[in-house]
Design a protein around this nucleic acid. Structure first.
Lengths: 218, 218
DNA sequence: CGACTGATTGACTATACTCAACTGCGGTGG
DNA sequence: CCACCGCAGTTGAGTATAGTCAATCAGTCG
């Protein structure tokens, strides 16, 4: 889990040859920073743990989520290469974070009090806007609209190409969209039947009709 | 709309004699700052408008929301005295903001680039945590659980007293919780029938059984 | 005191959930 | 290289929760 390998990433690179995002601007605080590999499914931090380190995804994908006592789970965000997570309002983590696929993370030391990098602040504001926009999806959109919004978001974050890599399982997608896996699966099938997308593999999609998909996501 | 009056606030003060929040720490950037009154229902800013000003609620209540093209609305957050809103990741507002009741706002000038006050950063992180927690409510909780969570949140933000002021309408509550007004109303009635709360007026509630309410919100 | 608006209650419906069976992809071993 | 196995995903049938439409009630403001 601490040794660097490429295992688990074959077939799912969402970054260019330098491990940089194709979309997001690379983030850089003062060097040096440590890079750590996390195996698929491994925990990055847990709710209640002491916070401090900030993480930037180099390659792979991360889910950040919260649990109810009976096990219901809400994934509040996925993080792809170039994106930052792990900041908290106080000294404690309020969420869980796990690697989805094999993931390399840059570990950035806690910001110095009174010296907040502009880029870190911007990243936080982008996360806030993203979360607030997702509230609209969860609160007011139907199952089809949610899945359409998810696919468009994933596509946009990967450069807007036809081919979309989907590193997470149907369970993860359901827990992100506030749906069951069965509903997610049914919607994928319906979009496929309508010729809006194709599903070359379980972990990828091709968007064939952008306009139709955008119309669905409202 | 620009002249200071007290109209519309009678009966709903959620702050102490100094107009300070009973719960939140007061926020203060470098003085001076302008105070402006907004009448009930009046617009503070609109989606697409140029952003820049940051707002702190002195008294009253604010709703920040987003609309779908067909009119469906999601309120992403309510802001009560002492709380800050209006910051955006770029130069443009992505949401609408309106005064719910008569509201006094401190208008704080845009932060200087490269000079982000610690308190502003903390406030942003608190908003992010709050939004992410609300995702769990919208994505994974039932109608009763959502209303219970709302009541507890409102109570906590007002000092945890038995008496809770509810400055917003049932429509607002529904659009915040991702429910219809009918469902909100039915849940209020059910909580009342169970003796968990009483409803002295339409704009207030008394929490009689905290444990029961907390258990419902999970 | 009356009218208007917001809230409540009721009857019925629809969307997504639950439970269950089946399919197929991907990985492993012969 | 192919066959088997296991699990993630799909599909189906029936159900439940919240939504829709409609009527009534209540609180507020002229």
């Amino acid at each position: 889990m601490l040794a660097y390998t490429n295992t688990g990433m074959s077939g799912h690179p969402i970054s260019d040859d330098n491990g940089r995002s194709l979309v997001q601007l690379p983030f850089s605080l003062t060097l040096p920073h440590q890079i750590t590999y996390f195996a698929p499914g491994s925990e990055i931090y847990a709710q209640g743990q002491k916070a401090g380190t900030i993480y930037e995804v180099e390659f792979g994908a991360v889910r950040v989520y919260r649990l109810l006592t009976d096990g219901r789970r809400q994934i509040s965000a996925f993080y792809l290469p170039g994106e930052i997570f792990g900041l908290e309002a106080d000294e404690t983590h309020h969420f869980f974070a796990e690697a989805i696929t094999g993931t390399n993370l840059r570990l950035l030391p806690r910001w110095k009090l009174g010296n907040i990098p502009q880029e870190l602040f911007s990243s936080t504001l982008r996360s806030l806007t993203r979360a607030q926009e997702h509230l609209l999806v969860l609160g007011r959109q139907t199952a089809i609209e949610r899945v359409a919004a998810f696919l468009i978001d994933m596509a946009d974050r990967q450069g807007g190409l036809e081919q979309v890599e989907i590193p997470m399982s149907r369970v993860d997608i359901g827990d992100y969209l506030g749906l069951t896996i069965e509903t997610v699966s049914r919607v994928f099938s319906k979009l496929k039947d309508k010729g809006i997308i194709t599903l070359p593999t379980l972990r990828s999609a091709q968007i064939k009709k952008w306009n139709a998909l955008r119309a669905l996501s409202e």
